[in-house]
C-alpha cells in the first residue's frame, strides 16, 4: 500500500528534522562568533539577548508541538482513512462545535503567546536609562557611552560621541580587492574580523545611534540581540549592555550593494581600565584631517573603489 510507505517516509524525514530543531536548544555555543554546524543562537552576552533566547525557546517548543500535532493527524488519517481501511467515505461536512474549537483554541494560544511577546517588545526595544536597566534587568551599569555608527559602502564609521574619537572600521581580510588585507591575527574569523574594532567597556550602557551615508545598511551584533537599520537621513537608536568581556562579531544585515558581504562589525568588550587606556591612546593618536574624510583612507591603501564612496557631509561626519 503506497499510503503506508508514504507515511513512514514523511514521518522519518520530519522526525529527524524536528529532532534537529530540538537539539538546537541544547547545543553548546561559542562566544561572540558562529561555529561550525551551529544550530541555535549564539551565546548571549547581553540581557536583551537572554530575553530573546528565553522567548524563542518557548516559541520553539510551541511550534514544534503544533507541527507534530498536525503531522500526527495526517499520519493517522493516512493509516486509518485510506481506501483499503475505509472503503466507504463519510458524508460529514459540518460540525459547528469543531469549527468553533479550531477557531477559538488558536486564538487562545496566540493570546498566550502575544502577552510575553508584547512584554519582550516593550521591555527591550526602548532605549533605557541606567536606572531602568537596574530595574528591569538587575544590572548596575558602571556608566554610559554613546556610539554613533554610520554605514558606508562598504565599511562602518564610528564616532564616540562623548569624546570625539573616530574609528574607520572595515573588513580586515577576505577577498583581496575590497577588504584591507594584511596579516590576519591567529584565529581571526574571515569576513568577521575588522581592522579597527569598536571597543566598549563591560557592564556599561552603550547607546548606539545608527545612520548611513548613501544607501541603507543594518548594524547587527547577534550576541547582544542588536539589529537596527542604518538609514540615510535618519538617526536610529538602539542599545546594549555587554555583560561579558570578549570579542563579538556581526555583519551588515541589509542588502547595500556589491560588497554587502564584506562589512563586518566587531565589538571588543574590555574592562573599564583597558577601555580607559584604549581611549587615551586613541585621543593621543587622533589626526582630525584623516578622520573627517573616510575616502582618504582608501586612497592611502591604494584602493580605488568601483564606485566613488558617496559620503554626504553633515550626515556621515
Amino acid at each position: 500500500m503506497f499510503g503506508r510507505n508514504a507515511g513512514v517516509a514523511i514521518a522519518a524525514l520530519f522526525t529527524a528534522l524536528i529532532a534537529g530543531a530540538g537539539a538546537a536548544l541544547a547545543q553548546e555555543a561559542g562566544l561572540g562568533a558562529p561555529f561550525d554546524w551551529q544550530m541555535g543562537f549564539q551565546e548571549p552576552a547581553s540581557p536583551v539577548m537572554r530575553d530573546i533566547i528565553d522567548f524563542h525557546n518557548f516559541m520553539l517548543w510551541l511550534i514544534t508541538a503544533i507541527t507534530i500535532f498536525v503531522l500526527g493527524l495526517m499520519l493517522y488519517i493516512m493509516f486509518r482513512f485510506n481506501a483499503k481501511s475505509n472503503p466507504v467515505p463519510s458524508k460529514n461536512t459540518h460540525n459547528t462545535m469543531l469549527e468553533v474549537i479550531w477557531t477559538v483554541v488558536p486564538i487562545i494560544i496566540l493570546v498566550a503567546m502575544a502577552i510575553p511577546s508584547f512584554k519582550l517588545l516593550y521591555k527591550d526595544d526602548v532605549v533605557p536609562t541606567a536606572t531602568r536597566v537596574a530595574d528591569l534587568y538587575g544590572i548596575d551599569v558602571a556608566g554610559e557611552i554613546t556610539l554613533k555608527a554610520t554605514g558606508l559602502q562598504w565599511a562602518w564609521e564610528y564616532e564616540y560621541v562623548d569624546n570625539g574619537v573616530f574609528l574607520f572600521s572595515s573588513c580586515l581580510y577576505g577577498p583581496d580587492y575590497w577588504c584591507f588585507g594584511g596579516e590576519a591575527p591567529e584565529g581571526a574569523h574571515r569576513l568577521l574580523e575588522t581592522d579597527n574594532p569598536v571597543v566598549v567597556p563591560v557592564n556599561t550602557l552603550v547607546k548606539v545611534q545608527v545612520t548611513a551615508a548613501a544607501v541603507i545598511h543594518a548594524w547587527a551584533v547577534p550576541a547582544f540581540g542588536v539589529k537596527i537599520d542604518a538609514v540615510p537621513g535618519r538617526l536610529n537608536e538602539t542599545w546594549f549592555v555587554a555583560e561579558r568581556i570578549g570579542t563579538y562579531y556581526g555583519q551588515c544585515s541589509e542588502l547595500c550593494g556589491q560588497y554587502h558581504s564584506y562589512m563586518p562589525i566587531q565589538v571588543n568588550v574590555v574592562s573599564q581600565e583597558d577601555y580607559d587606556a584604549w581611549l587615551a591612546g586613541q585621543l593621543a593618536a587622533m589626526q582630525p584631517d584623516r578622520l573627517k574624510a573616510p575616502t582618504t583612507e582608501f586612497a592611502q591603501q591604494g584602493i580605488t573603489p568601483r564606485r566613488p564612496l558617496a559620503v554626504t557631509p553633515g550626515i556621515a561626519n
Binding site: P34, F35, D36, F41, L191, Q251, S261
Partner: peptide
Amino acid sequence: LAGMPRRIADYPDAYA
C-alpha cells in the same frame, strides 16, 4: 539562528 545574514555572496567559514 546562528546569525547568517541573507543575500550575502560569501559568508564566514563557520556557516559552511
